[in-house]
């Protein structure tokens, strides 16, 4: 959006990690995302908020081309990560997804051991040359996800046997293990209780040091707690984007104001 002063915007342009320009997404004949332009800063948490069906999850999924797995989905416009167009035919979506990891709404650990869950990505991408390097990756990923102390003695137990909150942090650790630059989170706490949610939010805040994080959330409190920047989507349109503080205290658009004060959505 072009509502910020020019100089500030220019600074952002040069520094942004992801920049989307006139992005359109179609599901068959449905125009799900319309003309979205957004700059996402590195090493920050950007929250996408908006009512259900507003396209925020769809847009999130275009950032690592997860929408490619849906046959009828079509994306237009350009999305650049580090200045490189990810929809360029030369780009391998599989490689892209290693760089732009994803955490889903429902914790989805594989029905394998905790260790194998974390080691899955590194093994596929050949990140470890031997067993001890793989062990290091597993332990450091679990440490970064704040799960190490809880699971270090039961790495060979199935990941599906953990609690919901632990499972979700396992999925975050699994995403970290392939050393992505960006982590996309699609309502990561919607299936968790408040205590598990607090732990995951704390984790997200710590991860900001090393990763660029984009999080879709239905909870405005959560957006306010974890994010530095917030983007509000409505009916497939990016209505407003800016520093979280500003969006929540002084929204420029009427629709944003209505949404955050709970008048619709």
């Amino acid at each position: 959006m072009n509502e910020m002063p020019n100089i500030e915007q220019a600074n952002e342009m040069t520094a942004s990690k992801i920049s989307a320009d006139k992005v359109q997404v179609y599901y068959g004949d449905t125009h799900a995302i319309k003309d979205v332009d957004i700059e996402i800063e590195p090493r920050t948490v950007t929250a996408f908020i908006g009512p259900s069906g507003c396209g925020k999850s769809t847009f999130l999924r275009t950032l690592n081309r997860m929408n490619d797995t849906i046959d009828i989905c079509r994306v237009e416009g350009s999305i650049k990560i580090d200045g490189e167009d990810i929809y360029d035919p030369k780009v391998d979506p599989v490689q892209l997804r290693a760089k732009v990891g994803m955490v889903f709404q429902k914790p989805n650990p594989f029905p394998k051991s905790i260790y194998d869950n974390i080691a899955y990505g590194p093994r596929i991408h050949g990140l470890a040359r031997n067993k001890s390097e793989l062990d290091d990756i597993v332990s450091s990923s679990l440490q970064k996800a704040g799960l190490w102390e809880e699971v270090k003695n039961r790495l060979d137990e199935p990941g599906t046997g953990m609690s919901g909150g632990q499972q979700q942090r396992l999925c975050i650790a699994r995403a970290i293990a392939v050393s992505p630059e960006v982590i996309l989170m699609d309502e990561p706490c919607s299936a968790l209780d408040p205590i598990a949610t607090a732990k995951v939010e704390e984790l997200i805040d710590e991860l900001r040091e090393n990763f660029t994080i984009v999080i879709v959330t239905h909870s405005m409190q959560q957006a306010a707690r974890v994010s530095q920047r917030t983007a509000f989507f409505h009916l497939g349109v990016l209505v407003e984007e800016g520093p979280t503080q500003e969006i929540f205290t002084n929204p420029k658009d009427k629709r944003t104001q209505d949404y955050i004060t709970g008048r619709f959505g």
Partner: peptide, 14 residues
């Protein structure tokens, strides 16, 4: 579940 496929594809698996 589709979530398994998504999880794996999301990690950059083919």
């Amino acid at each position: 579940p589709q979530a398994m496929r998504d999880g794996s594809l999301g990690l950059g698996a083919t």
